[in-house]
Amino acid sequence: MDIGDMRRDFESEGLDRESLDDNPIRQFEQWFGDAREAGILEPNAMSLATTGHDGMPDLRTVLLKYFDDSGFVFYTNYGSRKAKELAENPRAALLFPWIGLNRQVRIQGTVEKVSKTESLRYFASRPRGSQIGAWVSEQSQVINSRGLLEQKVAEIKRKFGDGDVPLPSFWGGYRVVPERIEFWQGRPSRLHDRFEYVKDSDGWLIQRLQP
């Protein structure tokens, strides 16, 4: 299937250095707020790229659950494929594709586990069904049928009854600590505006990139 003629011009206001915050996290917060106000579906959905010992890149979509100057936090099963790859190579890249605004944000950095306290706080805020799901799924492992999952759900529900569902020891959060953040604004004729923040000893170096 030839889809080479699928294209549209990006009609949007430009991005210049004077309009950018000196702090990329504050700049991200502004753009994230714009995405929410614009009604972008799941504005906190981000592509997470990892690489293990074999050097093969892996990619999936996860949900951002918290961010501040320390980094960007998501949660997962510590036995999942992404977790194993992060154990082998604790570096990752994130992408927020806010296509409806002709924008995207790219982030690269190191990865660390969040504290158990942080994981517990977030886990306690999740819907009960999601809490039970965390106990049920051996994420990324092969399973013969969905019926086995549903059977495990029933077992976990019986186990915990009406009481609180505790945090599994194999589940928690990761923080991507940014070293490089790029803000991309689509422009006509593919002459897009791109600004990159690079972490250095004095804070953040901001530079314009060619499209």
Rank of each mutant, 00 (worst) to 15 (best):
Y174E: 05
W31I: 15
S145N: 13
V114Q: 04
R208W: 01
R106H: 13
E155S: 07
P97A: 09
T110H: 00
D164I: 06
I107H: 01
Q207D: 12
R8S: 13
F72Y: 09
G55H: 00
E85T: 05
A35S: 14
S169P: 00
F67W: 11
L59Q: 11
S130E: 13
M46D: 09
S201R: 13
R26Q: 13
D2I: 07
A134K: 02
N144Y: 02
V73L: 05
L191T: 15
G33M: 05
R128A: 06
A134H: 03
D22E: 12
P188R: 14
E13K: 03
Q108C: 03
R208S: 10
R17T: 09
L94S: 05
R208H: 07
I99Y: 06
G4V: 05
G186S: 04
F160A: 09
S130F: 06
V136K: 01
A83D: 09
W98F: 04
V176K: 03
Q185A: 08
P90H: 08
V142P: 01
I132C: 02
V111D: 05
D193A: 06
S189H: 15
P166E: 07
E182K: 08
A154N: 10
W135K: 05
R106I: 11
G172Q: 03
R8G: 01
G100N: 10
A92R: 05
D22R: 13
D68C: 01
V153G: 02
E85A: 02
V114F: 01
Y174S: 12
M46P: 06
F74K: 07
P57K: 15
D193L: 09
P168T: 13
Q185F: 11
R175F: 02
R17C: 01
I156E: 11
L20W: 05
K84M: 13
G129N: 11
R8A: 11
Y122C: 01
V176D: 04
E112A: 14
A45D: 08
S130L: 07
G79W: 00
Q27T: 10
E18C: 01
F183E: 13
Y78L: 13
S125D: 09
F10S: 15
T61V: 15
P178F: 09
P97G: 11
G79C: 02
E179D: 14
L48A: 06
A49H: 03
E112Q: 11
V136G: 02
Y66L: 07
R60A: 13
R194F: 02
D162C: 02
S119C: 01
A49N: 04
V105S: 08
I40Y: 00
M1F: 05
R103A: 12
P90W: 05
